[in-house]
């Protein structure tokens, strides 16, 4: 069984002919060729597959394609505006927030989501906001630094 799944991905209207139970993660990676979204566990625990769906972050490994029908999705490829990095991305580079980079797409998305919900997050809010994204490399410290810096950057650019 295949279904037609139509959604907007990073601003582009897309249509996929896929089994309705196909994971959104696989649709993005294999049908849309957006391999920036990563699989770390396949069971909602690691956050490497995080994308924004209709304004909320979700684990794309746990979303059946059919439920994405009609939705608006942003993946890591849609976070920068052309060649201009998002403040979170820039801060991840300058503060060493990415080491091996496997958690990074999901982590950046979670951080962007946090900063849209909370303008100037305190330490606990940062920790809470990223708690669904496991990073095995950094010990998180540099990621917290990056998120704080991104919050400052966003506050200073209207």
């Amino acid at each position: 069984m295949k279904s037609q799944v139509r959604c907007s991905v990073n601003g582009a209207a897309c249509s996929f002919e896929v089994p309705p139970m196909a994971r959104l993660l696989d649709v993005l990676r294999e049908e849309a060729n957006l391999t920036g979204t990563k699989e770390g566990c396949g069971e909602g625990e690691c956050g490497a597959c995080t994308v924004i769906m209709d304004g909320r972050i979700v684990n794309s490994c746990l979303v059946p394609a059919l439920q994405a029908d009609g939705s608006t999705i942003t993946t890591i490829e849609g976070i920068a505006k052309g060649n201009v990095l998002h403040a979170v991305q820039a801060a991840f580079i300058s503060h060493g927030g990415a080491q091996c980079g496997m958690c990074t797409p999901g982590m950046v998305i979670a951080a962007v989501d946090l900063l849209t919900r909370v303008v100037n997050p305190d330490e606990n809010q940062i920790r809470e906001g990223l708690a669904g994204n496991i990073c095995r490399c950094t010990g998180y410290t540099k990621i917290f630094d990056a998120v704080r810096e991104a919050a400052r950057l966003l506050a200073s650019t209207p």
């Binding site: 396949g42 909602g44 746990l62 979303v63 059946p64 439920q67």
Partner: peptide, 23 residues
Amino acid sequence: LAGGTDVMVAFERGLLRDARLIS
């Protein structure tokens, strides 16, 4: 299948026995 956070985990592990699902 509601939010899928239990069902899809079973699916990932190859443990989802139900052939027909209703979202």
